[in-house]
Structures are given as structure tokens and as C-alpha cells.
């Protein structure tokens, strides 16, 4: 499906577009299934819990089908994005996913320090001193604003437990 030379290769726009239309349609199907479970008919008290979601689900499936058809028919040989660009995007998504996934175990503060540090050091190539200052500064400020000032507890892990925070 990919076209063009190797320098600007990447997934075709059409392909991604079709995949997204299919994903949305899948979501619509899930909604329909869930609505059927909740009851879709018009009970004594007006519409039941699944009545609206059911038709919403149908709308989603139908409009996705049309979008899929339009997308495939369209004469668009463009790229969705180049592989290099996607690599850039992934270089944010993957660390963020690790950050978010680690949060329930390590707590927010430790994860944030490492995340900010990683981002600034590897993507920004800042000197260590700046990296450490920002990476430590931000969570400390956050701690005082949220936990001390506004009394909003944020997720904590073993390190905070150990420090008695």
C-alpha cells in the first residue's frame, strides 16, 4: 500500500482512515451490544436505559460504513505520516504510557521525576543540571500546591511511604 521513495515512506492515509472507520464501527457494535443488555424498548416509564444508546450505536455503525466507503473511494494516495514523524510521535506516546502505567505502583512523584528527566535529557539534550532542577522542582511545587495547599492527595508509592509524606 505504501507509495513513494524510502525517504518519505509511511502508512498510506487511506489505510489508516479505513482502520479508524472500522474501529469506530466496532465501538458502535459494542455500544449496541451493551444497550441490548440494558433493554432497548419503550417501557411504561418512557424509553428504557438502552433505548438511546442503541440508536446511537446504530448511527455510529452506519456513519462509519459511509466514511469507510468514502475513504476507500477517494483518490488520495497521500501518506498518513512519514515513518520518521510517527517515530517522533511514538517517542512521546511510549514513555507517557510507561509513565502512566507505572503511576499506580511508584506513585506520581517518582514517576514524574523520571519522566520529565527522560524527556528533557533525551529529547531536549539539556545539561544534567537543568534536567535535575526541573525534574525535581516540578514535583516539589506540585506537592506543595496540591497536597499542602489544596489538600488534594495524589497517588503515592513506596518512596513517599518511606519518607512519611
Amino acid at each position: 500500500m505504501t507509495t513513494g521513495s524510502s525517504s518519505n515512506a509511511g502508512p498510506a492515509h487511506k489505510l489508516v482512515e479505513a482502520a479508524i472507520a472500522l474501529l469506530i464501527a466496532l465501538f458502535g457494535v459494542i455500544v449496541i451490544v451493551g444497550s441490548l443488555k440494558a433493554g432497548i424498548n419503550w417501557g411504561a416509564e418512557g424509553p428504557r436505559a438502552g433505548f438511546f444508546p442503541f440508536y446511537i450505536g446504530i448511527f455510529i455503525v452506519v456513519s462509519s460504513a459511509i466514511n469507510l466507503w468514502n475513504g476507500l473511494r477517494e483518490d488520495n494516495d497521500g501518506l498518513f505520516a512519514e515513518w520518521g514523524q510517527l517515530r517522533q510521535v511514538m517517542s512521546v506516546i511510549i514513555p507517557t504510557a510507561i509513565y502512566v502505567g507505572a503511576m499506580p505502583f511508584t506513585g506520581l512523584y517518582l514517576a514524574s521525576i523520571i519522566f520529565i528527566g527522560w524527556f528533557m535529557r533525551w529529547l531536549g539534550k539539556y545539561p544534567w543540571i537543568t534536567v535535575v532542577a526541573v525534574a525535581l522542582g516540578m514535583p516539589v511545587v506540585t506537592y506543595f500546591i496540591f497536597e499542602r495547599w489544596f489538600l488534594v492527595p495524589l497517588p503515592k508509592g513506596p518512596v513517599e511511604e518511606w519518607l512519611g509524606l
Binding site: 512521546v92 507517557t96 509513565y99 502512566v100 503511576m103 506520581l108 514524574s112 519522566f115 520529565i116 527522560w118 524527556f119 528533557m120 529529547l123 531536549g124 539534550k125 539539556y126 526541573v134 516540578m138 514535583p139 506540585t142 496540591f146 488534594v152 495524589l154 497517588p155
Partner: peptide, 18 residues
């Protein structure tokens, strides 16, 4: 950007959590 982006991401995470 490479300073503000991680800070925004962390702030977003805090926002979503709270």
C-alpha cells in the same frame, strides 16, 4: 518545547487523576 511538553503531560496526568 522539550521542557514545557513533559511538564504539560505531567500536569495533564495530575489533572486527570484529581
Amino acid at each position: 518545547f522539550s521542557i514545557i511538553a513533559p511538564l504539560i503531560l505531567v500536569l495533564c496526568a495530575i489533572g486527570a487523576y484529581s
